[in-house]
Amino acid sequence: MFVMLLPIVINTCVFIFLSAIHFYWAFDGKWGVGGVVPVNAEGRQMLDPGKFGTIIVALGLLAFALVTVGNTGVFDALVGRSVIIWATRGIALLFTLRAIGDFTYVGFFKKIKNTTFARNDTRIFSPLCVLIAVLSIMASMA
């Protein structure tokens, strides 16, 4: 039974951790902020999410944690299990697409590879997206 719950526990913890980091950044936290936003070859940021955008991402990650927990059956009285399963598979698809990337700035197939973000993306962010995707598929089968 515990082995079946392991993907759910890991993904939930990852989503809560990532959500907390985004809330921290949204409220002017500085730790870890370097090299987390895609930049072009000249080093110019390709997006500036601002406080509101960062809070939206944090809330989305928190929602992903709740969906993941839903695979335990805890929300069955509120939401049909099939909704939770398909939402979890949607999360897997989203993170698979993020790992593949846009073929320019993010993902395993990016062209811009010599920036701090690109190196972080190759070593940390894209592999984490693959892990989340795999664990999401496993969670949806729990």
Rank of each mutant, 00 (worst) to 15 (best):
F108M: 08
T88N: 10
F95G: 02
F15G: 00
L97E: 00
T122Q: 14
V37S: 01
D76N: 15
R81D: 07
I84H: 04
I16H: 05
G43S: 09
F64P: 00
L94H: 07
I55C: 11
G90V: 11
T88I: 05
V9H: 06
G43T: 04
G70W: 05
D28I: 00
V83C: 07
I100C: 01
I100L: 13
A58Y: 08
V39H: 05
L78P: 00
F109N: 07
N11L: 07
P38M: 04
F27A: 08
T116L: 15
G34H: 12
L5Q: 11
V83I: 14
T88L: 04
I132G: 07
A139K: 04
L18H: 06
R81C: 00
K30Y: 00
T96W: 06
I56Q: 12
D48L: 12
G43A: 04
D48M: 13
P49W: 07
R89I: 09
V69D: 02
P38G: 03
F52V: 14
T54Y: 08
I132W: 00
G32K: 06
N114D: 15
V134P: 08
F64N: 04
G43M: 08
I10A: 03
V33E: 13
K51E: 08
L5T: 01
R123I: 12
K111D: 02
G29Q: 06
Q45H: 10
I16V: 15
V74W: 11
F52M: 14
T116G: 09
N11S: 07
G35S: 05
I8K: 10
F52A: 14
Q45N: 11
S19N: 05
F103P: 00
F15V: 00
Y105L: 14
V74M: 14
I21V: 14
I8S: 09
M46F: 00
